[in-house]
Design a protein around this nucleic acid. Sequence first.
DNA 1: CTTCGATGAGAAAACGTTTTCACATAGAAA
DNA 2: TTTCTATGTGAAAACGTTTTCTCATCGAAG
Lengths: 348, 348
Amino acid sequence: MAGRAQGPDSGGAKLIDVARLANCSLATASRVLNGNPRVGQDERERVMRAAADLGYVPNGSARALRSTRSRLVGAIIPTLDHAIYATMVDGLQAKLAESGVSVIISTSHYDLDLEFEQARLLVERGAESIVLVGSAHSAQTMALLDQKRVDYVLTYTSVAADTGAAIGFDNEKAGAAAARFLMDLGHTRLGMIAGITTNNDRAKGRLDGFLAEVAARGHDPEAVPVVEGAYKVESGRQAMRSLMDLPVRPTAVFCGSDILATGAIKYCQQQGIAMPKEISIVGFDNLEIAELTAPELTTLEVPAREMGTLAANYILAPVAQKRYLRQTELPIRIIVRGSTGAAPKFSE
Amino acid sequence: MAGRAQGPDSGGAKLIDVARLANCSLATASRVLNGNPRVGQDERERVMRAAADLGYVPNGSARALRSTRSRLVGAIIPTLDHAIYATMVDGLQAKLAESGVSVIISTSHYDLDLEFEQARLLVERGAESIVLVGSAHSAQTMALLDQKRVDYVLTYTSVAADTGAAIGFDNEKAGAAAARFLMDLGHTRLGMIAGITTNNDRAKGRLDGFLAEVAARGHDPEAVPVVEGAYKVESGRQAMRSLMDLPVRPTAVFCGSDILATGAIKYCQQQGIAMPKEISIVGFDNLEIAELTAPELTTLEVPAREMGTLAANYILAPVAQKRYLRQTELPIRIIVRGSTGAAPKFSE
DNA sequence: CTTCGATGAGAAAACGTTTTCACATAGAAA
DNA sequence: TTTCTATGTGAAAACGTTTTCTCATCGAAG
């Protein structure tokens, strides 16, 4: 970080230079470049030409300072290393770019204190809106956004706080749907490989919903073995092993992500556990890999890109419309593939 | 995009408020918050406390305007939807965040004109450095970066332009290594499924290197069938089909990415083409999915995260060190797994 | 003819910082 | 004592825009 972006000498043409070349005042030049209609045709053309000739690039800092509009949006996600989040950001960025709004990205690594620091930095940078993941955030963070009047959007959740917006889906409903789907196939011995639930309300929601539905069907949720694993293929494999080593093996396992599910499938293949004959597996996310396993993976589709696009739409919307977009719950589809089947019959 | 980030009334405490509360001048307050040592102990403490009490958040625009240092870095990548790029950005962002530098991200979708627009916008936002992917960029883009004195880093390539830095690997060498590996296994009937080479010097480099090595071994590169496919599993599948439909089937296929390779493997499985007995397949990237196929995929590892981290190091380095880091060529390893084997013996 | 509203244009203030410059004060060197 | 250097502090300029006034000019309405 050495060398300056736009030194006084270097960098190049400023608005005053454009104005001089176009033989008009600073004010007029500014108006032209901002599309203000109150300026004559010929003047407008002179300024445009002058700007082009000089290769004029406005100074965003100065503009932001004076106008209090930075055209900057911040996004804080757990990590870019998961397709789910990367794709959401891709959608967000693509949509915002259409309107000339830039995205500053930062990662929290599932740490709420770190998230607060990032939020602070984003506010400092002048972000007009901030996109967050999930509904669990530190009180500090919320207070900051509130005090500084930064509007924010929660994604991957449908639970909106009292101030910001929420655009996502209901993780509990999704977990319940998975349980229902498996029980409808006749499975009664269920298990779950959940993502790490600490500081992760999405992982927790899926687990809670899953167990709640089990209870709703009159089964004992306490009897459902649950293993938590980091978002890694290998943890899925190991989690599956510990489930399969249980005295009473589950016949169906719901995994909190496709990555975990893939590891689970891998374990079954290695152990020669027939799928879906002996074991049914359901994933979560519908990543591209869900079609690469053998058999292909039944999974719940997360509308990652759509959440990004909708968050962008909300951010770009005029205040009048905002209240209608404030709480958007997206439906979550189950994609049935070969990894699930009817529960095996037991001879006992 | 409605509602302002830091209005005159709203938002909250400014530096002048901090100064007043600490009973000192604006200058002193500024010095304290910037760690300037020329200020007394007690004064320093008063200012710190005042800033904390008021929840003071500096205005980055004003700071950037006056100091010409934005602490902002831009990154323009083809898309965030490919793990390769997302991971690089993750590494970049993580490293820069340690020094309080933020990353503005934008995507070019492999379009050089769009890339120029994005670069312009980043310069406007005050980015002090810009990270680009590959070595092929429009003259306009290069001229802009040059004129505005924005230093830039090319990644995924080891070819540096005369001004910026390059941190990556040699795609031609990598392609050649793949060819050598396969020929060393006895394969003479090679084929390639390349990524779309239009506006993509990385895809093109891999192809060129592959063919060059074939030629270097005394074979006719014209005889090597090449199919281009978009970065999708399905295009890999289709590309593989067209290769397998050839009158003389290749016995070994080099794919420009693991995604394409995965599609190719899928086709072979569907068609019952034995791997690696009848066909050897080599991928590129070493994505997590490379370990999920059956057999697992032999592939060339791309140091995506490392490139991001090193780009960040370069950006953060003091000018004196920059020249030593300017051109960093990373080695590229071949990860041998089950998808490749000795060439089949022909009865002819 | 006036008076008016509309239109086009410029001068100067303002945005919130950092930085330059000047000025005290105090202890050390002469 | 005088002169110097080092240290801490404040006043005010500066960064490059946007925006608020103010002021002409002009054709239309009175």
